[in-house]
């Protein structure tokens, strides 16, 4: 089950080599995103697009806000 986290947890996990994924559309990612995040829009998230991620490292996903 995915774990909900807050901003301090994000920083801690990134220091532990977590992968940071922005799941918003590409245009919104181009405009602004968290440092180091890669973009895999939710609509395109599948086995093929997720293949660029390592399964042996933590993954953090985020979008704009709670919605």
């Amino acid at each position: 089950m995915p774990t909900s986290i807050f901003r301090d947890d994000v920083r801690r996990l990134l220091a532990e080599r977590a992968q940071l994924i922005d799941v918003m559309p590409a245009g919104e990612y181009a405009d602004q995103h968290l440092p180091g995040a890669v973009n895999i829009p939710l609509k395109t998230l599948n086995a093929e697009t997720a293949d660029r991620l390592r399964k042996d490292l933590p993954v953090i996903v985020y979008c704009y806000d709670y919605q």
Partner: peptide
């Protein structure tokens, strides 16, 4: 997205729910 990644075999998935805002 977090649930989708779990279904794809990722074992350690976190959701930064408050997001970039």
């Amino acid at each position: 997205a977090a649930w989708r990644l779990e279904s794809l075999g990722f074992a350690e998935v976190y959701d930064y729910t408050p997001g970039e805002a």
